[in-house]
Design a protein around this nucleic acid. Structure first.
Lengths: 207, 207
DNA sequence: TTATGTGAACTATTTCACAGCT
DNA sequence: AGCTGTGAAATAGTTCACATAA
């Protein structure tokens, strides 16, 4: 089944596997079976094997997968080069949480730039980055930043998306519930936690 | 096809429709066709009609859907009674963003309680709620709160989940990347934005 | 006319069972 | 003996075309 069409769901799971592998490596493990990895990531073993099988033979029969090698392969598939840079737009509570979050590191990411339109925030240093005026978004291309995180109020989300696209950004992680419109070649992933919360009661039996 | 098994994906889309309807209502519209709603929510019209058809005949042929009625029906399906209460655990940047977010309102939600283990935060009033000591989680049942949002560092996420389950919580929105383990009857929805960011480069052509 | 509701075809994804290496 | 890799079956979800009702 090698090199056939890859399910989107498989791509969605790869970063989860990567984190599981990072945890196992940290525990000093060198190799892992699909069964053991399954316990870490809550994905059934046959699903894990099938997912990997789309890309190649990464394991050794009777043994399992070499953690370092498998991690390298997944990173290659996902295009995760070390030192990948992302920009953040909107340094409110949510944006600050994103800036403070260290969980991007295992994916080789760094949030390298932050923008806001609030003069009180511009110039402030949060963690390792200084907050820049939102009008400076147009410098992203020359700084080699092609991914951005939108964490602004929904009224300004589309406008920010337009600036980002104009600045050459190719991928956007969008926290605003407003569906933003971008050219087809730009990939948008939206995280909308109000809708996620809203479907929780459906799965709760009585009340 | 009425009353047959409902796709999970349909349930996932219902809150999105609800927001679209709320926006249309705010613009003074009283009725809407699947085609017009499609423009608002970026879901194709036939998908919208099919989704509704699992639950009943909500529209009028040749006319469309009555916005007020359709909203009421969707809320009933999702079990969204007005005044639904949720608790927040972890009042860091992310938790504060959740507390400040007004987008829950159209779903009839209110974040009614907030907990943290930091003495500097306990007792502080953020928006309408006072931060309580995390040991008070056990009061949730008697306060009629059955849903919770976990926004704590991943090391403590499982422990918090255990307390919440012990306190009778039936649904959890989990922002920590650690897969938390709960009894089967408790529904967990995980939002893991690092993994979402990590698959963005896959969809970006060159680099 | 106009727009819904839906069976049927199609496509995507998961699950299983087991052959095949090490 | 143990664990991977994968075809084939089963399940889930999407898309279409059109009969049907206002």
């Amino acid at each position: 089944m090698r090199y056939s069409k890859i399910p989107n769901e498989t791509i969605r799971r790869l970063p989860i596997y990567l984190r599981g592998l990072a945890m196992l490596a940290q525990q000093g493990e060198r190799s892992v079976s699909s069964g053991k990895l399954a316990d870490f990531v809550s994905v059934p073993p046959f699903q894990i094997r099938k997912d990997f099988s789309y890309f190649g033979d990464f394991g050794t029969r009777g043994v399992g997968y070499d953690i370092a090698n498998l991690s390298r392969q997944i990173k290659k598939i996902l295009n995760l080069e070390p030192g990948h840079k992302a920009a953040l737009v909107g340094v409110g509570n949510l944006g600050s949480a994103v800036l403070a979050y260290s969980g991007f590191r295992i994916y080789g990411f760094e949030v390298e730039a932050a923008f806001d339109n609030d003069p009180a925030k511009i110039g402030k240093k949060i963690g390792r980055v200084s907050v820049e005026d939102i009008s400076k978004i147009n410098t992203l291309a020359r700084r080699g930043i092609m991914m951005a995180i939108i964490a602004v109020p929904e009224q300004t989300a589309q406008q920010v998306a337009d600036s980002l696209v104009a600045a050459g950004v190719k991928g956007i992680l969008n926290f605003s519930p407003k569906r933003i419109t971008v050219p087809k070649k730009v990939k948008v992933i939206t995280i909308d936690f109000a809708t996620d919360l809203a479907r929780l009661p459906y799965y709760i039996p009585s009340s």
